[in-house]
């Protein structure tokens, strides 16, 4: 009798309602969708750019080899239209290289300083200021290039024009440093503290900890930081449009004006009449840009994998 009433009172596990289970399925579906959407968007962007560019391949004025390896860009010439983008590509690459040769040492250096050497209070202040630097609109950077930087370059070097490769490179360097710093700082922060203690306890100095332990441990993250900096530089448009002088030529020195792929598209697309050859070739320039950044990312990916396998 007593046993019976005891077993009657045994609690049962409550079941989940149908609504709750369906809700979970729905949520899962939405999350999966947003995960996949990145792929869809990339493909869609590539597709639409390429669709706008495709008709140029059927134009008699167009030759792919000349497009890639000829430096003459005369898209609006009445008698002899030439669509050579070599000067633009070289312009993009040279500005980026110059910017990175300045931004990478400064960016990684300040990341190391912020993460390892400075006091907590200074660290907070520096991080806020660097984020502020990243928040400056690119057109404002362009202004600075056009006015302050240009005048300074003229008075220091005596160059005839202040808007040139050097100017664009400096501006781009300033713009990429905040990204490089914040990603690199994250990478250094992710190195377990026990590695630092291990090295310190063996008598390493702070500097030895940095280059013997931190840099090797964080190399993937640091490389990612550099790549994002490169991506930023290659893709930047407004600031380089204003600071590089916008002259289509292969530069022979730091003080030559250049034009980049991005600036060229931004400046000319508004003037090109829709579905003209000029319009289509500008889109093809976009495809070229796309391939360029894609190549950079892919190489980086391989490099990182290579490091990992080691």
């Amino acid at each position: 009798m007593n046993d019976m009433s005891e077993s009657d009172r045994l609690p049962t596990l409550p079941k989940r309602s149908v609504v709750s289970m369906a809700g979970e399925k729905l949520l899962e579906f939405i999350i999966r969708l947003s995960g996949i959407s990145a792929i869809v968007f990339v493909l869609a962007i590539f597709f639409f750019i390429f669709r706008e560019a495709a008709p140029i391949f059927f134009s008699e004025n167009f030759n792919l080899v000349k497009f890639l390896f000829n430096a003459e860009w005369y898209p609006t010439s009445v008698t002899n239209v030439r669509y050579g983008t070599l000067a633009l590509t070289v312009g993009s690459i040279s500005v980026t290289l110059l910017a990175m040769s300045i931004a990478v040492p400064f960016g990684l250096g300040s990341a190391v300083y912020i993460s390892e050497f400075c006091s907590p209070r200074l660290k907070e202040a520096l991080k806020i200021i660097i984020e502020l630097l990243a928040a400056i609109p690119s057109v404002v950077w362009g202004f600075i290039g056009l006015t302050v930087m240009s005048r300074t370059i003229i008075s220091l070097t005596g160059a005839p024009v202040g808007v040139n490769l050097l100017n664009g490179g400096l501006i781009l360097a300033l713009m990429s440093v905040p990204i490089i710093v914040s990603i690199a700082e994250d990478a250094l922060k992710a190195v377990p503290d026990s590695y630092r203690e291990a090295a310190l306890a063996l008598g390493a100095t702070n500097w030895q900890v940095v280059y013997r332990v931190l840099l090797p441990s964080a190399k993937n993250g640091l490389l990612a930081a550099v790549l994002l900096g490169i991506g930023r530089s290659v893709g930047e448009t407004m600031a380089v449009l204003m600071a590089t002088g916008h002259a289509v030529q292969i530069p022979h020195g730091l003080l030559d004006s250049v034009r980049t792929l991005t600036a060229n598209i931004a400046a000319e697309l508004g003037e090109a009449s829709a579905s003209s050859d000029h319009y289509h070739v500008l889109f093809l320039t976009g495809v070229l840009l796309f391939i360029l950044t894609f190549a950079v990312n892919l190489t980086a990916d391989f490099v990182i994998r290579g490091i990992r396998r080691k």
């Binding site: 026990s194 590695y195 203690e197 291990a198 310190l200 306890a201 008598g203 332990v213 090797p216 441990s217």
Partner: peptide, 21 residues
């Protein structure tokens, strides 16, 4: 000299912490 001190006084930690090399 902290460096000399730490050379003469070695330390083993709670979690094994070899350096990733």
């Amino acid at each position: 000299s902290l460096i000399e001190l730490r050379k003469s006084v070695g330390m083993v930690f709670q979690r094994p912490n070899p350096i990733p090399i």
